[in-house]
Design a protein around this nucleic acid. Structure first.
Lengths: 197, 197
DNA sequence: TTATTTTTTGTACGATTGTACTAAAATAAA
DNA sequence: TTTATTTTAGTACAATCGTACAAAAAATAA
């Protein structure tokens, strides 16, 4: 892949994220994205096989960035209790620093859920996101730090934590001046209390 | 409003909900809705001023049905602790019984958020949904049943509860055979623990 | 019945979309 | 420089959408 190709793809992805975040998925046509990037519509078609490939790239890049941010912070912790705290803290911090990207991905995923056949992809993503939380919970139970969780009650708890994080972002988009630190502290408190033994 | 008009509007709204739930918002064109309702596209235009009015009607009817279901159950409770339990239980039960309708509304609301100017409506809806939870929390604090909540920490808790409910529905759509009763029990437990004094 | 209004159908139109395609421009290779 | 390749701009096209509209059909009123 040439230098120009890499640079263009990065530019187009960046601009597509901004466009989706600002005008919404339904209004984010290739023409609109191109206009904002000050390039011709044909350039996008040249560098991306289809619009779908562009949108998929947005999701892939977010997932990679998210992994890179969360994983090392999580692995630096010993206690499951600290891991859960850091998981919440770093997720909210990451999301607050990447609101547009997160929002774009959320829009795309919610469209894909409805797209019928692509439900599997959503399920895979879910598993990749939920399992790490479940592992923290399982470890905490094993060490006697957390209250008892069965497999399915740990699943509900993991989902609730994820929903809290995702919902925080939606609130952040609705109210951009939200106090992120305070929100983070409260969420940590809630899930610290509700997991403790 | 004539008998035919009422019946047709009800039929079209019902069919629009099913269509959105089954093929997604982006694929739910008036043509597709009409085809499934086995009527001409023009009939929809005749009974609804625009597509937007039809979609708005879907939201209005859901909100009314939700209110009618939740309010009496909530008002039958004395203790804030019981109110919180019943709020979670009845919300999950209602949503499980109205998955398609809920999902359609979620799709529409998430589109409206992106639609720019309509952000106010979403904020109003939020307030209408969050304030009742905050009131329960405030009452619980006052009676000494719940731990201390400031105005803003009560807001975070209310949001977290709402996100847990909304997120449950998304999970229910992804996994239709989810054990609703068990999920409900777990959620009640989580928020019972995390609010208790 | 006949007359009038309401309702439905089917089509057409303007707007918008993603993609295909051609010619021009820019860049790299010779 | 000349040649070849990559990249860009701009246009055209087929498909799809919401809406408008005219004529047919159905329902209601007289």
């Amino acid at each position: 892949m040439s230098f120009i190709e890499k640079a263009r793809r990065a530019q187009i992805v960046k601009c597509a994220i901004e466009t989706i975040a600002e005008v919404g998925y339904t209004q984010a046509s290739l023409g609109e994205i191109a206009k904002r990037a000050k390039i011709s519509k044909g350039v996008i078609s040249y560098h991306f096989a289809s619009k779908d490939e562009l949108l998929e790239q947005i999701c892939i890049e977010y997932y990679i960035a998210w992994q890179s941010y969360i994983s090392p912070r999580l692995e630096a912790q010993k206690s499951p209790k600290e891991m859960l705290r850091v998981y919440i803290e770093s997720n909210l911090a990451f999301v607050a620093e990447n609101r547009q990207h997160f929002f774009a991905v959320l829009e795309l995923v919610s469209k894909n859920i409805t797209a019928g056949g692509e439900l599997q992809l959503s399920a895979d993503h879910d598993e990749a996101v939920l399992v790490p939380i479940e592992n923290i919970l399982a470890q905490g139970v094993q060490e006697g730090l957390f209250r008892k969780f069965t497999k399915s009650s740990a699943r509900v708890m993991a989902l609730t934590i994820r929903n809290a994080i995702d919902g925080f972002t939606m609130e952040l988009i609705r109210k951009p001046h939200l106090d992120v630190q305070e929100y983070t502290r409260e969420l940590v408190t809630i899930f610290d209390i509700s997991t403790k033994n």
